[in-house]
Simulated scan of single mutants.
Amino acid sequence: MHCSYFVAERCRSCTLLDQTYPEQLAAKQAHAQAVLGPRPDLDWLPPVASVEAGFRNKAKMVAGGTVDAPTLGILDPEGAGVDLRDCPLYPPALHASLPVLADFVTLARLTPYDVAWRTGELKYVLVTQSPDDELLIRFVLRSQESVARIRKHLPALLAALPHAVVVSVNLHPEHKATVEGEREILLTDAETLRMRVNGLDLHLRPQSFFQTNTEVAAALYRQARDWVDERSPGDVWDLYCGVGGFALHVAAPGRTVTGIETSVEAVASARVSAREAGLDGTRFLAGDATAFALGSGGSEGRDGAPDVVIVNPPRRGVGPDLARWLERSPVRSVVYSSCHAGSLARDLAEMPSLVPVRGRVLDMFPQTMHYEVVTLLERR
């Protein structure tokens, strides 16, 4: 993949761009195997490759520059905006939206936030593209000062971007290194972006998480579904379920699937998806995954545990408390999807009775050393 920003050293986020893609994929496979260490029972399946460019379904664009000459991209070490509207990682519909959004910044007089001086309003423009090329657009603002102007000019934005189905404002008044705040203001009648994956419609609300690479995410869900179906469980938990990608894929007649997620918005999204798909055997609850597991075991005894557990934790992993609960429980199989092989290895050390028997690297993030690795653990 050629990137003019990388060549000019304006953006070096794609740290592996000097390597060929086969070299990148081989290095990720070797890294996963080295981090997990020698495991005679572990059968590594061929890695899942991605397209090299145009794979990112979301853009997290820092607002910089001035209201009359805004930049959308990143900030350089001095805090100046670096415009990345032509980044080759974005697919066509998302790519085409960025100059329109930059023009809208000027039209609605959204002054970019100055990190050094802590002045201005617009911090980020966040865009997500669905497989049907529809868009969810979010403006992250320091205050409500600009909301009225955004509402006033919203018809012009929707006319210029007819595929924009959800537009919202996120209020992030604090000066801190996080992307968004807690309060979301919807500006459109539609509340969710429909992400069509493997024939399932997954609804994505503005504050819900979805994997960055839709095609590789689809492969991840299929792999988990196949492993779960081979075991024919009657009861499955999907911990850290997000918008329900794993849970909805493994749902089947006669099977109860419970998804647990801290994000209330993600749980609301998952419930809409399940209802539309007619998956009556699924339920989604807002809560902490570890607290749910420990509470179920404490109140219902060992019989409260399911046959299979799916976990897809953040980079830090499931942590010792949940790992030790899984070790003590009668759970027969665990499907563990991890974006950080190191935390996966630490968690595996806490549950030696659950042995990895299959593993697969999925290249969710080409041009970087990041990847997803999914493993099937069986009780021995």
Rank of each mutant, 00 (worst) to 15 (best):
V335Q: 02
L376K: 00
D280K: 13
M195V: 05
M1F: 13
E174L: 12
L322N: 07
W237T: 08
A323N: 10
E23S: 14
V311L: 09
N213L: 03
V355M: 10
S168M: 08
E9C: 12
G244H: 04
G254V: 12
D307V: 04
G242A: 04
A32N: 03
V228Y: 02
E145K: 10
L200E: 08
V167D: 06
A49C: 06
A268V: 02
N213R: 01
R118N: 13
T214Y: 01
D86E: 14
D347Q: 11
L154M: 09
D114I: 00
I137Q: 08
V264R: 15
E300G: 14
R225Y: 08
L141G: 00
E145P: 03
G199I: 11
V228T: 09
A30K: 11
R85W: 03
R109H: 12
S337H: 05
V115P: 00
Q211K: 06
C3G: 05
W237L: 10
G319C: 09
E350V: 00
T188Y: 14
H340M: 07
G64R: 02
G242C: 05
K28D: 05
V67C: 08
A286P: 10
K28E: 06
L158C: 08
I310W: 02
A116V: 09
V165M: 12
V105T: 04
S168E: 12
Y5G: 00
R12D: 00
T119K: 12
E378A: 11
D83V: 04
P313R: 05
V115K: 09
T178N: 14
G317I: 05
V7S: 14
E184Y: 11
A218V: 01
G120W: 01
P313G: 07
E184K: 07
D229Q: 14
L72Q: 00
V197Y: 05
S273R: 03
D133Q: 13
A268L: 15
P92K: 06
V82F: 05
L354Y: 08
L279C: 09
P38Y: 03
L42S: 04
L42V: 06
R358I: 04
P46V: 07
P306W: 03
V179T: 15
L94Y: 05
M369Y: 13
P356M: 11
T256H: 15
D133Y: 01
Y5F: 14
V67M: 06
W237N: 08
V51E: 11
A274S: 12
Q144A: 14
F246P: 08
L220E: 08
H163S: 15
G245Q: 05
D43M: 03
E378N: 12
C87K: 01
C3E: 02
G120V: 04
R39S: 10
L122E: 01
R358P: 04
E350M: 11
V335D: 07
L126H: 11
G254Y: 06
L72F: 06
T71K: 00
E230H: 13
E372F: 10
R271G: 01
F284R: 02
R316K: 15
G120R: 03
D201G: 04
K60H: 14
P22T: 10
H175N: 13
S273D: 06
G54I: 01
P320Q: 13
G281E: 08
I310R: 02
M364T: 10
H340K: 11
P131F: 01
V216D: 07
A148Y: 09
L126G: 07
V267C: 09
R255I: 12
I185K: 11
C14K: 09
V361K: 02
L202T: 04
Y5M: 07
